[in-house]
């Protein structure tokens, strides 16, 4: 008796499973059409709505300022930023993260996106950035060169080699034949800088723009080898942008005279 009643219950289970899948796929397709309708509604040239910008961590200060300018120039728009390691951002864009614009700190990380054909138009270089050593305020360890960082007892943090600032630092170290063992490989340039700001590390190899943005919390030390490892910063609107018009407008603002002035003020080099 009990076994016989158990069997219909099991049949019911498979039926519900199919129903569950149908519900899921229905959700999916309705989602797709609604977002499609949303983008076509904002289609006719007028720039409005939210634009999502994925940008390298080193762009945090300058892009946040440019975002405010953008919102002022196009009333009714809102710029949302996600700052992080360029490699992390590129990987998340390729796996479908909802972004409209990608600004990377190296051409190599932008290639991840262009190889996947996730960019709407070819990336354009909008700035360049040079490395600098960030030390504790007043430079108590008297760091004057890249070679000084290899001194034993000095706690140095680098960006991970997968991140543009880490790749550039490695390039500069290799070019000068130096071997540096850091205490940590950080996942983006800001976390490397933070370790020095918190005085947990004695020095970090970061960008000149980060040293400038940190104000008096760190001291900057220029080193000639950084000239061999200057990063190009490319920017591109993305193929799957939900707000293509605003994406284009944001890229235009970054490349405009006004945008370039803001970037130069932050310490970036002209493209």
């Amino acid at each position: 008796m009990t076994t016989r009643t158990a069997r219909p219950a099991r049949l019911q289970v498979t039926g519900a499973g199919v129903a569950a899948l149908l519900v899921l796929s229905a959700c999916n397709s309705s989602d797709g059409t609604s977002s499609g309708a949303g983008s076509s509604a904002s289609g006719p040239a007028k720039v409005s709505g939210t634009v999502t910008v994925f940008a390298a961590a080193s762009l945090q200060e300058s892009f946040t300022a440019l975002g405010k300018k953008f919102e002022k120039a196009y009333p009714g728009t809102e710029v949302e930023f996600s700052f992080g390691g360029s490699d992390t951002l590129a990987a998340s864009i390729v796996s479908g993260a909802p972004a409209d614009v990608f600004a990377a700190a190296s051409t190599k990380t932008m290639t991840i996106v262009t190889d996947a054909k996730d960019n709407a138009s070819p990336p354009l270089t909008f700035a360049r950035n040079q490395l600098e050593i960030a030390t504790l305020p007043g430079n108590p360890d008297k760091v004057t060169s890249l070679k000084d960082l290899t001194r034993s007892g000095l706690k140095v943090v680098l960006c991970d080699r997968t991140v543009p600032c880490g790749a550039a630092a490695q390039k500069a170290l290799d070019a000068s034949g130096l071997r540096l063992t850091p205490v940590s490989y950080e996942q983006d340039v800001k976390s490397a800088l933070t370790k020095v700001e918190l005085k947990e590390a004695d020095a970090a190899v970061v960008y000149r723009t980060d040293v400038r943005a940190a104000g008096d919390k760190v001291d900057g030390v220029d080193f000639p080898e950084s000239a061999d490892a200057v990063n190009d910063y490319p920017i591109a609107p993305l193929e799957n942008a939900r707000n293509a018009e605003a994406a284009k407008a944001f890229v235009a603002l970054v490349r405009s005279a006004e945008g370039q002035r803001a970037l130069t003020e932050a310490g970036f080099l002209k493209p």
Partner: peptide, 11 residues
């Protein structure tokens, strides 16, 4: 429960 699992819970 062996029998009569309500659909509203099962799904």
């Amino acid at each position: 429960i062996r029998t009569g699992v309500p659909f509203a819970l099962l799904l």
